Simulated assay, not measured.
Amino acid sequence: MLLKSFTSSNRLLSVPRPSSRKVAGLTPSSKCRANASEDGRSLLGDIPYTAVSAISSIGLLETSYLTQVKLFGAPLVCPSNGCEEILSSSYSYIFGLPLSLFGMLTYGGVAALAAWASQKREEVHQDSGPLELADKGLMAGASVLASCSAVLIYILKTEFYGESCSWCYLSASLSSTLFILVIGGLLGSKRLRAAAMPGAGAFVLGLAVLFTGFADVGQSNAEISELAYYKPDVTSESSKRAISLAQRLKDSGAKMYGAFWCSHCFDQKQTFGKKAMTDFPYVECFPTGWRRGERIADVCEAAGVRAFPTWVINGRTVEGDLSLDALEQELGMPP
């Protein structure tokens, strides 16, 4: 009886043998993916290294082109009105070197590092060290690009009111996308904590370098806080075609919105000539002069003016100075 009781209790305490049956839907590889965050993977997946490398390569091409323009005097192609003035200003240099050169080096480093990390991705389960190192570098690179773009867009909006710069907006879009992809790919993982310090340091470093390098530029620009209104003197001769076109524009209700200090507006007036400008549908957006922080005239704001000059022809808004051919086309005149 005692022996029977012992063997019965022994069966109750015995450790069950591992089952050789597979649980449906749960394989070793799927279990690893389910616990990805414990292995250093993001809860949202991972950094899309290939996409990061591709976007950085676009930034590399853009900044390489702008650097070539600066260093070798290559012609600058501006998709929008105003980028020539912005990209040739004092803000386009830092410590005596083209700002685009630093962008080129940073984009190039991020592109190469992301391409290398993409090849190393398959080794993450054996050794996550290489990817953690890449994450730190990518976080630092994306952070410094994002911080610099934020400062430059702020300068564009405050120091170059009414001007547009397609190259600047492109770079800002690329750097913002890179930052979102990198931080989003690490969100919720241990690797984010490891990469946070280099990223924060690079962000602050980017701001410090720009503010230090632009200190003299900001002081010189701060001296100009007001411009008294003056009427630019149009000196070119008007052709019969220009005079006729000016009258047609006026009769159609077209308007050209501009600013007295805008060089592109003056160029547009010179295209028509002195006589055509005597009865021209021009609207001045700063009729009492320019003062820092002052808004444009109500009539210009109501027309949605964001750059100078701005044409409104047949209900359509067109930015930039236009040729006579382009204006005739906007009016619907036969070629």
Results as ranks from 00 to 15, higher is better:
residue 13 L to P: 00
residue 15 V to Q: 14
residue 17 R to W: 04
residue 24 A to Y: 08
residue 40 G to I: 10
residue 43 L to A: 13
residue 51 A to Q: 12
residue 56 S to T: 04
residue 58 I to P: 04
residue 65 Y to K: 07
residue 70 K to A: 15
residue 74 A to Y: 14
residue 75 P to W: 08
residue 75 P to L: 07
residue 76 L to A: 10
residue 93 Y to A: 10
residue 96 G to R: 11
residue 99 L to P: 02
residue 116 W to N: 03
residue 117 A to H: 00
residue 133 L to D: 06
residue 150 A to E: 10
residue 157 K to C: 06
residue 158 T to W: 07
residue 160 F to D: 11
residue 174 L to P: 05
residue 176 S to I: 04
residue 178 L to P: 06
residue 179 F to G: 05
residue 182 V to A: 05
residue 183 I to L: 15
residue 192 L to A: 11
residue 192 L to H: 01
residue 197 M to Q: 06
residue 201 G to P: 02
residue 203 F to L: 13
residue 203 F to H: 01
residue 209 V to T: 12
residue 214 F to I: 03
residue 222 A to H: 13
residue 226 E to S: 03
residue 231 K to I: 03
residue 237 E to G: 00
residue 238 S to E: 12
residue 241 R to I: 04
residue 252 S to W: 00
residue 253 G to P: 01
residue 255 K to G: 02
residue 258 G to W: 09
residue 261 W to R: 05
residue 263 S to T: 12
residue 268 Q to E: 15
residue 269 K to N: 13
residue 270 Q to I: 07
residue 272 F to A: 06
residue 275 K to L: 13
residue 285 C to A: 02
residue 292 R to D: 03
residue 294 E to H: 03
residue 300 C to E: 08
residue 303 A to L: 01
residue 314 N to Q: 14
residue 317 T to L: 04
residue 329 Q to I: 01
residue 330 E to R: 11
